[in-house]
């Protein structure tokens, strides 16, 4: 099979959506409409992105368009984080700072050391993968931190009352939240390739690349994701800690249902 998948063959793959819908109705899961909507939405989104990418990263396009794209997805990712983990005040700023820091570090390594050539067609998809994975980890660590600090508020206040400064009082709970957020990424790095072939590698092989070449590219991408997820998670956890434990060493939990003892 070569790379050009035309409309007819794409339509044939929709048969698989039909299978999912059929299963849903047989089992009375009441998910048929959701599945259809999600599939349609995904297709439209991807088509739009495809068209936009044509405009941004075609070989004759200037590089700044690709950079603008990267900035755009960074901001959008921070918006998504705020929407999904908005209980913590100021999480948009924290997420934007963390994602940007991690983009600078990881893209800096990849392009600075010449792992990939600095071209739009490398920059945009790599940044997309990096930001996407980091965004998920950011949401996870933010929610985890808020939950951990809420569950352990008595312990944290007891530590503060013993005269521990805010960073020390929060450290055990921050560590727990960061571990929880990082473990899925470490797990998937450890088992990669044993069960499923990751997306980039699958795509490269389908497009006709040699498996070994595809493997090396995939490995570099995996390290990119691992590094950027670890960087964002650490920065976000610190940022959220500073929101919940103030500079004057008080625990300030976001108001949940207006309840207090």
């Amino acid at each position: 099979m070569n790379g050009d998948l035309d409309v007819l063959r794409l339509a044939a793959s929709l048969l698989l959506v039909a299978v999912a819908v059929a299963l849903s109705s047989v089992q009375q899961l009441r998910l048929s409409r959701t599945i259809l909507w999600a599939s349609l939405r995904a297709l439209v989104q991807l088509l739009l992105v495809g068209v936009a990418l044509e405009l941004v990263i075609a070989p004759d396009r200037p590089l700044y368009l690709a950079w603008a794209w990267v900035v755009g997805i960074l901001v959008y990712a921070a918006v998504v984080v705020q929407r999904r983990a908005g209980a913590v005040p100021g999480v948009f700023t924290i997420a934007l700072a963390a994602l940007s820091a991690s983009a600078v570090v990881s893209l800096g390594v990849l392009f600075g050391l010449g792992v990939f050539p600095l071209e739009g067609r490398a920059l945009v998809p790599l940044a997309g993968m990096m930001v996407g994975n980091s965004m998920t980890a950011t949401v996870l660590v933010t929610r985890r931190m808020a939950a951990e600090f809420r569950d352990k508020r008595d312990e944290i206040e007891a530590r503060l009352a013993l005269g521990l400064p805010a960073p020390a009082a929060g450290r055990p709970y921050l560590r727990e939240a960061v571990r929880t957020a990082l473990i899925p990424q470490i797990e998937s790095t450890r088992t990669v390739g044993l069960i499923f072939l990751p997306g980039a590698m699958t795509g490269l092989i389908l497009a006709g690349a040699q498996p070994l070449e595809a493997t090396m590219i995939q490995a570099a991408i995996m390290y990119l994701i691992l590094g950027s997820v670890a960087t964002t998670t650490a920065v976000v956890a610190l940022g959220v800690r500073r929101r919940l434990l103030t500079a004057d060493h008080r625990l300030v939990l976001p108001q949940a249902r207006g309840q207090r003892r």
């Binding site: 008595d154 007891a158 530590r159 009352a161 005269g163 521990l164 400064p165 060493h249």
Partner: peptide, 30 residues
């Protein structure tokens, strides 16, 4: 500074909140 103030005014709460670890570990936090 709050840590200084709090070391002068020790506090015990209504619900005892043990930290993870042994009794000795708990004292060592303070």
């Amino acid at each position: 500074p709050p840590p200084t103030l709090r070391r002068r005014l020790g506090m015990v709460f209504q619900r005892p909140s043990p930290f993870p670890g042994s009794v000795r570990d708990n004292l060592a936090v303070a």
